[in-house]
Design a protein around this nucleic acid. Structure first.
Lengths: 158, 158
DNA sequence: GTCATACTACTCGGATAAGAACTGTCCGAGTGGGGTAGG
DNA sequence: CCTACCCCACTCGGACAGTTCTTATCCGAGTAGTATGAC
């Protein structure tokens, strides 16, 4: 899995902690995490295309959450970066088996494919049940200073 | 995910359908599925290293299941090909956060990492619950001719 | 006919290239703000 | 002093290289079976 997923999730968390009216530039977020700015920008663009963030050009521009953090699941973020296709893609080896039929889509019928898909669904379900808002809340419970510390640190990097 | 995973699972299934005393060469399996022989051989070597198959050199040599199909889970096969490390590897971006502590291993403490690990565990649990023996049985229920057809087809490719 | 021996063909195993995907970088289009000059 | 205009710095966005991982290939070490020749 691309490391951009981790960058994206932590960036969304930071954006959830600043004022919704205020945009944060890719350069600020990159400086915050000590990451390459241009490449992080590339990942954030993917989040914009997925409808998770909105972007603004020019001075005082940057990225904002496009919707409430409670409506952004981890699966949304992962899908935005990695793409929607599942990790295991069936090549339909069953077609090479004697007695195979041409009219069957083995991506659905093959029992191996089904088992792998079932595991993939379990993974997706777990990620879909956890939102940016959840994690934001839980982090604040562990360390109540986080919102204020994050805001001030980002302000320094403007 | 590497496509070798699918090759490996289907190869194990075929090996489960031949006589346990009889070895099947990589060339036979490759011809069966119309796959590149040398590369399939490489994947099967990984299964040998993982203790799933045993190999024999020379004429009438090849690969055999190392143990009962019911004791070989899909997770075993996936792990043999892909490696044991989970897909999401935490880079500990939390360390860049103001108020972070050096003495904490954020690969365990970071809530993002925990959420991703939880999803990974759900995926692994699903794969661990499904064995080569399970699939073998289910396929035979759908098509009782499969064992005999597989054996004879492999014999042709000798 | 039987046994020992050498040979041959076959198989795995690891070392070696080609290709793709991920990672990282750079520059241009567009935008908003601030400075400046005129009223 | 107020306003309109122009310039500039800032930001995203997509096009362009470098690096790592996956995919694919090739050749050598070792082995089992077979043929051959001697006894």
């Amino acid at each position: 899995m691309s490391e951009g997923v981790e960058w994206a999730i932590h960036s969304c968390l930071n954006l959830a902690w600043v004022e919704p009216a205020e945009a944060v530039s890719a350069a600020q977020l990159a400086a915050f995490f000590a990451l390459p700015a241009a490449y992080l920008n590339k990942q954030l663009q993917a989040l914009v295309r997925a409808g998770i963030l909105t972007s603004t050009s020019g001075p005082r521009g940057g990225f904002r959450l496009a919707r409430d953090p409670d409506t952004i699941s981890l699966l949304d973020v992962v899908t935005a970066i990695e793409g929607a296709q599942e990790a295991f893609r069936c090549q339909q080896l069953m077609k090479s088996r004697p007695g195979a039929r041409k009219d069957i889509d083995y991506r659905k019928e093959c029992l191996v494919s089904q088992a792998m898909r079932q595991a993939d669904l379990a993974w997706r379900r777990t990620l879909a049940d956890r939102t940016i808002g959840d994690i934001k809340t839980d982090v604040e419970k562990l360390d109540p200073d986080t919102p204020e510390l994050t805001r001030s640190r980002l302000a320094e990097l403007r």
